[in-house]
């Protein structure tokens, strides 16, 4: 369960890194908001790296 949660958080991190850029491209999201979402994506992707997954 914990592993699944970590995996979901990391997947959300990657999604927040890439997907908002497409919304900026289509004009549905502000350029600066994208930067904030990318920062959140960075935290979500690297944050779980500090927790060791259960084997």
């Amino acid at each position: 369960m914990k592993n699944l949660l970590i995996l979901s958080i990391k997947a959300a991190g990657l999604a927040l890194t890439l997907l908002p850029a497409f919304l900026v491209f289509t004009g549905h999201l502000a350029f600066d908001t994208n930067k904030k979402l990318m920062l959140l994506g960075f935290i979500l992707w690297f944050g779980p790296a500090f927790f060791k997954p259960r084997r």
Partner: peptide, 16 residues
């Protein structure tokens, strides 16, 4: 750990 994220940052930055 960083590799997949870095690749997406390159792509996302260029698209944005």
């Amino acid at each position: 750990i960083a590799a997949p994220w870095m690749i997406l940052v390159f792509l996302a930055a260029a698209i944005a």
